[in-house]
């Protein structure tokens, strides 16, 4: 289980942006129990949620089991490491622009540790059934349902959520895994979760140009996934060698091309929405 009714959330990085995002998560129904700030010990966020000096102390006092990070990029690596050391089960890092060398260190540090990381550079996860959101996916566009969504994008994830709703479906869980080349939870982790999840009947996967993660997902789907999958790959018209907004989205070599990813996923039996504005229609057509 990634999140459930026992989920208690700790927030790190409550600047102007982070505070706004945390407020929205509370409004949606998320049980935020602790905030971490080195200089705000003893104060309250929104007049009710206590600040702690360290994540470890926050976990000890509140029993928080999930962490979310809005900390600016230069300090994000330290925040992830701090939450790993505090033994949080799930860490969701929203921060964009973390140096890739920092993520190499983070991933190396996390080997053999108990925490699972989602992100960075991601919108986080949301469960419309449990009314829990860890991150920034707008709650009002989600509907409770049985489609599991996993995506490398931010706003394209929202677009897909809206389309799923308009096609008459809802979401069991949406997971934004983020657009950085080195990240925590992968497509494969998410697919494996959805395959086992009783509330999920079908899966929507949103990929992008760059890297080979979609091909790896395709290999995994062949042998491990029995539920129907609809997918789209953004960037069929993107030029080679140009970074399209974020660090992961750059075609360097043949494998990074959208066409290669589409081919691999189709061969694995997934249904292709060749037009990213028709994800919902494609889903409707297979049922």
């Amino acid at each position: 289980m990634l999140i459930n009714s026992e989920t208690k959330v700790l927030v790190q990085g409550l600047g102007k942006d982070g505070s706004f995002k945390a407020q929205k998560a509370i409004e949606y129904g998320t049980n935020i129990v602790a905030c971490v700030h080195p200089n705000k010990k003893g104060q309250l966020f929104e007049n009710k949620i206590p600040y702690f000096e360290t994540a470890k102390e926050a976990v000890k006092k509140t029993g928080a089991n999930v962490g979310v990070i809005y900390v600016p990029a230069p300090f994000a690596m330290d925040a992830i490491i701090e939450q790993v050391d505090a033994n949080l089960e799930l860490i969701v890092c929203i921060t964009e622009g973390i140096p890739v060398h920092d993520m190499i260190k983070v991933k190396n540090y996390m080997k053999d540790k108990n925490s699972r990381l989602i992100g960075p550079n991601c919108p986080g996860i949301i469960s419309p059934k449990l009314k829990i959101k860890i991150g920034i996916i707008p709650g009002n566009i989600c509907k409770d349902g049985d489609v599991g969504l996993v995506s490398r994008s931010g706003t394209l994830t929202y677009e897909a959520i809206a389309q799923i709703g308009e096609a008459g479906f809802g979401q069991s869980l949406c997971i934004g895994i983020g657009g950085d080349p080195i990240h925590g939870t992968s497509f494969i982790d998410a697919l494996s979760y959805f395959e086992q999840d009783k509330n999920t009947k079908s899966i929507v996967l949103i990929g992008e140009i760059g890297g080979t993660k979609e091909q790896q997902a395709a290999e995994y789907i062949k042998t491990h996934i029995s539920k129907p999958i609809v997918f789209t790959i953004a960037g069929t018209t993107a030029p080679k060698g140009k970074r399209m907004g974020h660090a992961g989205a750059v075609i360097s070599g043949k494998m990074g091309l959208a066409s290669e990813k589409i081919k691999a996923l189709k061969e694995a039996g997934a249904y292709h929405s060749d037009d990213p504005s028709k994800i919902g229609d494609t889903l409707k057509n297979i049922f």
């Binding site: 994008s153 657009g179 992008e208 953004a234 960037g235 018209t237 907004g245 504005s277």
Partner: peptide
């Protein structure tokens, strides 16, 4: 003119279509 990299690429793709 789009907000978000993935959506911006998707918008390019749809424009071409």
């Amino acid at each position: 003119l789009v907000n978000g990299a993935g959506l911006a690429m998707a918008t390019m793709d749809v424009t071409t279509k």
